[in-house]
């Protein structure tokens, strides 16, 4: 157990825990848009930066990303000092210049009182903030179908050679987790398209509702040992079937008691 002070409050934490995890538990909120529980902390967005010091640091302060900083005994953390707020404002200001059309970015910037960027707007700025959540989650799922390509200001997320990614199963985790909803896909009921790749959907054999892609279902059957027929019925029809099965059993019981 370690004891540290966050914004004047003494807090206890497990040794080795990251500061952000402790802060979340204590309901002390800082923005952290490249952070996701499914993947390791990455430290790209820098918005979760906090000011730290210790009593024996002689007034020296350091600025660290709370997502990656392991808690220490006697740490004094300030999540909203003037310098930290200024850093967050600058970062959001920079995002606003790069992603002028993103509603999400606008919203985050607004929370820090920024409605107009101080910098030159990037005219063809898209909504991808390069948090790399999509690529990291794709890696975590075991597909590694997409990755970041290039470096610096020209960096982007793309499938290999910008062609439909062979390893993508169309699970949509990337799109679901994209903080700016930049990754798009289309679902037509029987087919799905993402990253330029077409997928056939499995539809419920009772009600025809689309369930998931054939590729994803096959992967799950193969790697996770789940019977393929589980994927043939949608959740609602599964519940109906469950009710009918249990109903039959109950009816037997009723008839049993009656006779």
């Amino acid at each position: 157990m370690v004891r540290l002070t966050i914004n004047g409050r003494v807090v206890q934490a497990e040794k080795g825990e990251m500061l952000l995890v402790v802060m979340n538990r204590e309901k002390i909120s800082v923005p952290a848009i490249c952070n996701h529980g499914a993947v390791e902390a990455f430290g790209a967005c820098r918005l979760c930066t906090v000011e730290i010091t210790k009593n024996d640091w002689n007034g020296w302060k350091n600025y660290v990303t709370s997502c990656l900083y392991p808690v220490e005994d006697g740490l004094i953390v300030s999540t909203h000092s003037e310098t930290v707020i200024n850093l967050r404002k600058t970062l959001l200001d920079l995002h606003l210049a790069r992603h002028p059309h993103s509603e999400h970015v606008r919203q985050w910037a607004m929370e820090y009182g920024i409605t107009q960027t101080s910098f030159e707007e990037i005219p063809d700025g898209d909504d991808c903030i390069l948090c790399a959540l999509c690529t990291r989650i794709c890696d975590r799922m075991g597909f590694a179908a997409i990755s970041t390509v290039g470096r610096g200001h020209g960096k982007e997320v793309a499938p290999p050679l910008n062609e439909p990614p062979p390893d993508c199963t169309g699970c949509l985790a990337c799109a679901q987790c994209c903080p700016t909803e930049f990754i798009t896909f289309s679902d037509s009921g029987t087919s799905r398209e993402i990253w330029g790749k077409q997928f056939e959907m499995i539809t419920c054999k009772e009600c025809s509702k689309p369930i998931l892609t054939k590729d994803f279902a096959e992967t799950l059957s193969k790697t996770r040992n789940i019977p393929a027929d589980y994927f043939e019925v949608c959740d609602e029809c599964h519940r109906k079937a469950t009710a009918l099965t249990m109903g039959k059993i109950s009816q037997w019981q009723r008839e049993d008691t009656a006779s």
Partner: peptide
């Protein structure tokens, strides 16, 4: 764990009782 879930719907599809939704 909502913080970990990536909303891929694998569990929703896999549950044979339709109880992940």
């Amino acid at each position: 764990n909502e913080a970990v879930c990536v909303k891929c719907m694998a569990c929703v599809a896999a549950c044979p009782f339709g109880c992940a939704l």
